[in-house]
């Protein structure tokens, strides 16, 4: 599978008189293959938007190499801009213009037929509100308009920064369906989001960034599998005795008030047989699979110190150890493990 987006060793440092020097992206790598719906995750301030802006030529990178649809970015970006639709972080529009006029102006500037305006307004659910001024729009409606502007060009590659921002649950579902339909039509989608459950539902691949560096990348199921500790939740009538039996069998057991969590279980029948042979009948035996949220929190260190106030991109509490020793790379392009570094 060919790469649609390639970023290698991207670096960006912001300099400010008041705040000094701040490293936003520090040697970041990203590869998005053709046809993927690729999730781009990271805490606030981790460098997601800076990466996307650098990729789209809005921010000057200090180092690294980037390409979009095979064209080096930003030098050759104009050659492929007509095939790339993008929205970058809280897109803003001119309040006094209607959505229809906003899109018409963009279409005219980009040489897109005017008929596309009505099509994309229909596509994002703004058909009946397109004649209203944007300043009267809710955040979710502005977000829909932003997506509509990105879709105008019928792009081969769609880059969406927080597309679900401000959307209500129904809007989030519509956005999910839209991305699925675009993916089915062959559009490659790179989507950054904080709504991890959404990413898990929509995306087939994921890259996680923390403090400007990639900490995980690959197929979603493979990333999750890398964090699967083969744990099971066990409910049984005599939990203390059951825990003792399981520990004697060499299995790690974590006792909770109403259940046990047993780790390193290769096969569920091991647990049920072990307890059944001792007359303990299992009422529940449920595998505990990691979800993207728990993986994200573990990789970015967001959930390790609940007692401390969390700072923006506070992946590493002051004086604490790094949340993660290195990078989990399970292959960004297709299923080729580790082939993207």
């Amino acid at each position: 599978m060919s790469a649609v987006i390639e970023i290698e060793g991207l670096r960006k440092t912001f300099h400010s008189v008041r705040h000094g020097r701040r490293i936003a992206v520090d040697g970041f790598d990203l590869v998005v293959g053709a046809g993927q719906v690729h999730g781009f995750l990271g805490p606030n301030g981790s460098g997601k938007t800076t990466t996307l802006r650098a990729l789209l030529g809005l921010v000057r990178a200090d180092g690294g190499r980037m390409s979009v649809l095979g064209a080096p970015s930003p030098t050759h970006l104009p050659q492929v801009a007509g095939r790339v639709g993008a929205i970058v972080e809280s897109p803003q529009f001119f309040g006094n213009f209607t959505a229809e006029r906003t899109l018409r102006l963009l279409a005219r500037a980009g040489g897109v037929p005017a008929v596309r305006v009505d099509e994309v307004l229909e596509q994002v659910g703004l058909r009946d509100r397109g004649h209203e001024r944007v300043k009267g729009y809710s955040l979710g409606m502005k977000q829909r308009l932003a997506v509509a502007s990105a879709l105008l060009k019928q792009p081969e590659l769609l880059i969406l920064d927080e597309p679900a921002n401000g959307l209500d649950p129904a809007g989030i579902r519509e956005m999910r369906d839209l991305m699925r339909s675009l993916s089915a039509a062959g559009v490659t989608v790179l989507v950054s989001s904080h709504i991890l459950a959404e990413i898990q539902l929509i995306c087939d691949h994921v890259t996680i960034i923390s403090r400007g560096r990639r900490v995980a990348a690959g197929r979603v199921d493979e990333v999750l599998a890398g964090f699967d500790q083969h744990e099971f939740r066990v409910r049984v009538d005599e939990p203390e005795r059951a825990a003792e039996l399981l520990r004697d069998a060499g299995l790690p057991v974590d006792a909770h008030p109403d259940h046990l969590v047993v780790g390193e279980v290769a096969d569920a029948t091991v647990v049920s047989r072990l307890l059944g042979e001792q007359g303990l009948w299992v009422r529940e035996l449920t595998p505990l699979r990691p979800d993207l949220e728990s993986v994200f929190l573990e990789l970015t260190g967001e959930g390790v110190h609940p007692s401390l106030p969390r700072q923006v991109d506070g992946s590493r509490p002051p004086g604490g150890a790094p949340p993660h020793g290195g990078e989990i790379d399970l292959g960004t392009v297709g299923s080729d493990r580790g082939g993207n570094a």
Partner: peptide, 18 residues
Amino acid sequence: GADLNSGGVVNLLLWRPR
């Protein structure tokens, strides 16, 4: 000024990155 402030220029540059 309004275009820079409202994001209009960024929107335009996503279409015409020159």
